[in-house]
Nucleic acid binder design. Sequence first.
DNA 1: TAACGATGTCATGTG
DNA 2: CACACATGACATCGT
Length: 399
Amino acid sequence: MGINSVQANGDSSTGMNISQAVSHNVSLQDAMASRNHHDLRRDFDLMGSEQSSELLQSQSSNLSNSEMLLSVSNLTAEFFPLIENCTRNVSNHNQLSGFLDEAVFEQINLMGLCMEGLDKMLEEHDSDSGLSINSSSNSPESPISSEMSSCRSFCEDEGAVGYSIKAEHVSWDGVEGATGGSKVCCSQYNERSPVCAYSVHHDHTYNLPSNQNISTFPPSDVKWEEEDIKTNWSEDIDLTQDERRVRALRIPFSVSEIVNMPVEAFLDLVSKYDLTDAQVTLIRDIRRRGKNKVAAQNCRKRKIDIITNLESDVEKLRMQKDKLMKERCQQSRSISTMKEKLNALYKDVFSRLRDDEGRPVNPSQYALQCNSDGSVIVMPHKLLAMKQKSDKRKKEKKR
DNA sequence: TAACGATGTCATGTG
DNA sequence: CACACATGACATCGT
């Protein structure tokens, strides 16, 4: 296999393969995302839309020879079986086209929007690689392109919320999911709890009727290659249940986009696109739960912060209390010392005092009275008590 | 296997 | 009234 075998498919699938090859090569850093892009292309082409062929052909025709050579020559051996797989599916094109009705073509148009956005994203994301995809879909005059840019703008607005290019990859491979992976997943749904058997996280229930859980597109009687389903199964293991549900209902937006887009864009999405009740219910649920998940995380962080701060406050107050207790003990000791000194001084003074007849003064009958002017007089206890009472009365009268 | 922490979700209240 | 956000309560999962 090589360049020749890729180019040998001279129909509309050629453009798809080369475009895929470029996309795949450009985003090889993220192998999973590339695979999803590839599958998205395949899914898109399977729908039999002339739009898709034209779009893809124009993309491939806009590639310069050097770009094409570089892209194709860099393909890994892993990629070629995918191309084979892809062309095999494309060969079913005519069979599938019989299933398509107008509603399906609406879906195809929706997919077209996604494809354009994906190409733009790949071009922007991989600008460092030195490759450029001069896709006509990126032309500013394309109405579809402007639609997609509006879709993407609300995602970029939410960068602070954790939105990333990586999430975009997840988002757009979400579009392709209804090929094989969703069939596997949907087969595990039940009425109350549409949960896949390989549940990774929690079992979240929805109020969707069981018949709404399964997408009406592609037609249920389309048979997929066994190998194809296995491939998609292995990829789906890494997806969240919501991402699988988004795939299953063919919603052209990723979980992160649904959650993070501003309310205006979200309402616009709900009204602008002709979404089914099941799709609207799902994206509203995803948005509500996504918002609440972040809120719960913030709430818990806040709670931990509050507890941490309170523990810090408790520790500070404990230290302050210890300090005050020490100060109190020190003051008490100081007061005791001063009382002892005062008593000693009192005794010393009385031991030296003598009455008019030269006899010692009895401290149980007399007391020392210190006046405000600094003078000290010896008074009988009774007289001192009377004087204190009269002083008290004078103070009360002054008030 | 019980205990426990982390996380997602739901129900409800508030702005 | 619809929405975002906060939070308690509960379920589930992993250790």
